[in-house]
Structures are given as C-alpha cells and as structure tokens.
Simulated scan of single mutants.
Amino acid sequence: MKIVILLAFIGIFGALGAAGFFMLKNGSAKAESGQRNAQMARALALRVGLSIALFLFILLSYLMGWIQPTGLPLH
C-alpha cells in the first residue's frame, strides 16, 4: 500500500516538474510557444488526474478495509 501511494506522489511531483519545465522553457516562435503551452496544460491535467486517482484509491482502500485510521493518541 505504501509503495502505491509513494509511486503516485512521485508521478504527481514529476508531472508538476514537467509543467514547470515547459513553463520556463525559452522559445521565440509563436507556434513553439503554443506547443509549450499545450504541453504544460497536459502535464498539469495529468497531475490533477493523478491527485484525484490517489484520493479515490485511498478512499476505496478505507472502504474495503485495507487501511485503518489510527487516530490521535489520547494520553
């Protein structure tokens, strides 16, 4: 379970890094700029999709009993 969550976080941060790379990449032509914007938007959409998938996976895991909340210690 921990490995799946770790891989999802790595994918989320990787997509965020790719979007940042495309945002900061230099380019002079307008066509190249439009392509960069499309790549950046695709990377950000992937990040949002991975985040939603991770949330739904954690929710499903809780509902199926694969993970249990530990709560806060009361002492």
Score class of each variant (00 low, 15 high):
Met1Cys: 10
Met1Tyr: 11
Lys2Ser: 14
Lys2Arg: 14
Lys2Trp: 02
Lys2Val: 10
Ile3Val: 13
Val4Leu: 01
Ile5Cys: 03
Ile5Trp: 04
Leu6Thr: 15
Leu6Ala: 15
Leu7Arg: 14
Ala8Val: 01
Ala8Gln: 06
Ala8Arg: 02
Ala8Cys: 07
Phe9Ala: 09
Phe9Ile: 09
Gly11Asp: 05
Gly11Arg: 04
Gly11Gln: 05
Ile12Cys: 02
Ile12Arg: 05
Phe13Ala: 12
Phe13Trp: 09
Phe13Ile: 13
Phe13Tyr: 10
Ala15Met: 05
Ala15Asp: 02
Ala15Thr: 05
Leu16His: 11
Leu16Ala: 15
Leu16Asp: 12
Leu16Tyr: 12
Leu16Thr: 10
Gly17Met: 12
Ala18Arg: 02
Ala18Cys: 07
Ala19Lys: 06
Ala19Arg: 02
Ala19Trp: 04
Phe21Cys: 08
Phe21Val: 15
Phe22Lys: 00
Phe22Asp: 05
Met23Lys: 15
Leu24Ile: 11
Leu24His: 13
Lys25Ala: 15
Lys25Gln: 13
Asn26Cys: 10
Gly27Asp: 14
Ser28His: 11
Ala29Cys: 12
Ala29Ile: 07
Ala29Met: 14
Lys30Ser: 15
Ala31Cys: 09
Ala31Thr: 15
Ala31Met: 10
Glu32Met: 09
Glu32Thr: 00
Glu32Ser: 14
Glu32Cys: 06
Ser33Gly: 12
Gly34Ala: 09
Gln35Pro: 01
Arg36Lys: 13
Arg36Asp: 09
Arg36Phe: 04
Asn37Ile: 02
Asn37Gly: 10
Asn37Trp: 08
Met40His: 03
Met40Arg: 13
Ala41Gly: 02
Ala41Pro: 10
Ala43Glu: 03
Ala45Gln: 08
Leu46Cys: 12
Leu46Thr: 08
Leu46Ile: 09
Arg47Ser: 15
Arg47Gln: 14
Arg47His: 12
Arg47Tyr: 12
Arg47Val: 02
Val48Ser: 10
Gly49Ser: 01
Gly49Ala: 01
Gly49Pro: 05
Leu50Asn: 01
Leu50His: 00
Leu50Met: 07
Leu50Thr: 00
Leu50Arg: 05
Ser51Pro: 00
Ser51Tyr: 07
Ile52Pro: 04
Ala53Ile: 07
Ala53Gln: 04
Leu54His: 01
Leu54Ser: 04
Phe55Trp: 11
Phe55Tyr: 12
Leu56Lys: 01
Leu56Ile: 14
Leu56Gln: 02
Phe57Arg: 07
Phe57Ser: 12
Leu59Lys: 08
Leu60Glu: 09
Leu60Tyr: 14
Leu60Phe: 14
Leu60Arg: 08
Ser61Pro: 07
Tyr62Glu: 07
Tyr62Ala: 09
Tyr62Leu: 10
Tyr62His: 10
Leu63Ser: 13
Leu63Thr: 12
Met64Ile: 14
Met64Ala: 14
Met64Cys: 11
Trp66Leu: 10
Trp66Ile: 00
Trp66Pro: 01
Ile67Ala: 06
Ile67Glu: 01
Gln68Ala: 12
Pro69Lys: 03
Pro69His: 00
Pro69Gln: 06
Thr70Gly: 05
Thr70Pro: 04
Gly71Ile: 04
Gly71Asn: 04
Gly71Pro: 05
Gly71Lys: 00
Leu72Asp: 06
Leu72Asn: 02
Pro73Met: 06
Pro73Val: 05
Leu74Tyr: 03
His75Lys: 11
